[in-house]
């Protein structure tokens, strides 16, 4: 146990020494890894922001149930019970009078409303389902339409489907980018470790002759791969954060012009940790592959 800790500390120290031994190479490698990780992580963050922005927009994930004009308090209570039993998520009852008041408040509508002999608007429920997948929304809407005293159910399913398709396409693209750039990171680490092994061939040979195991020889190389990958992840987090800070003011201004209150979300502490962790794991994979292959060739 103690020897293992000593080995790992020594390997970490050696990995740090190798990183710092060529500062320019180190900075360039970290930049390359950082940029490789920036593209998928920025894409993911953009999708998250898009989902958040559209999730806030009214009507996108809501179903409106318009009741028949002759629906009374008993029917309204019954529908509310059915909504509860169906686990339909959150809902809000909008009475005819409330709807009329809203309409009157709209510009140019007051006079038209005043000229009507009676309130033409029905009572309504605005349902925000917990599950916003298009298939679930459509199934709920179909179920609501069969309930007594429900005159009309409105779900802008085409919009929801288009948006969902767009999000899925975006996710797929980000996924592809992530795989591609993960491969690039593994390749960069693989090559860096290969060069290190070639440069230290004599030292590795001596170490083996005086009793070094493969694990002992590989350990600083693996630490180096993890360290380089994790630092590359932090560089990516820095670049993404910088980019989002630059984009945040104009995006906010654009949202305000559309009457929305939207703030661009940047990376959280957990996101940064995940990015560094992913970089570290990919670095480890590259280092491990390279060490196994090239150390065998040295024998």
């Amino acid at each position: 146990m103690k020897a293992s800790v000593i080995h790992h500390l020594a390997a970490l120290r050696e990995a740090c020494r190798r990183l710092l031994a060529a500062p320019l190479n180190c900075v360039l490698s970290l930049l390359v890894i950082g940029i490789a990780l920036t593209l998928p992580s920025a894409g993911w963050l953009a999708l998250e922001n898009l989902r958040q922005a559209t999730g806030n927009a009214s009507g996108v994930q809501q179903i409106s149930l318009y009741l028949a004009l002759d629906a009374g308090q008993r029917e309204i209570a019954e529908i509310e019970t059915r909504l509860r039993e169906a686990g339909a998520g959150r809902w809000r009852f909008v009475s005819r009078a409330e709807a009329l008041k809203h309409l009157q408040a709209s510009e140019g509508m007051a006079e038209i409303i005043a000229s009507l002999p009676s309130n033409p608007l029905p009572d309504a429920f605005v349902v925000t389902p917990g599950d916003s997948r298009p298939a679930v929304l459509e199934s709920l809407a179909a179920s609501f339409a069969g309930w007594p005293k429900v005159a009309h159910v409105q779900l802008d399913s085409a919009w929801v489907q288009r948006f969902d398709a767009l999000l899925r396409l975006g996710k797929r693209l980000v996924g592809l980018l992530a795989v591609l750039f993960a491969g690039a990171l593994v390749t960069i680490t693989f090559t860096t470790i290969r060069l290190q092994i070639l440069a230290q061939a004599a030292e590795i040979e001596v170490a083996k002759l005086v009793g070094a195991t493969d694990a002992w020889i590989q350990r600083p190389l693996l630490h180096f791969g993890v360290l380089q990958g994790a630092l590359g992840g932090l560089v990516a987090a820095l670049l993404v954060t910088l980019g989002f800070h630059l984009l945040s003011p104009p995006v906010g201004e654009l949202a305000r012009l559309y009457g929305a209150d939207f703030v661009l979300r940047s990376l959280s502490g957990l996101d940064v940790a995940v990015l560094a962790g992913v970089g570290g794991v990919l670095g480890w994979v590259g280092a491990r592959l390279s060490a196994r292959l090239h150390l065998r060739h040295l024998e």
């Binding site: 103690k2 020897a3 293992s4 000593i6 080995h7 020594a10 001596v206 170490a207 005086v210 009793g211 070094a212 195991t213 002992w216």
Partner: peptide, 10 residues
């Protein structure tokens, strides 16, 4: 020190 580092001596 190399052989001693390999066996993990403090």
């Amino acid at each position: 020190l190399l052989p001693l580092a390999i066996v993990g001596l403090p």
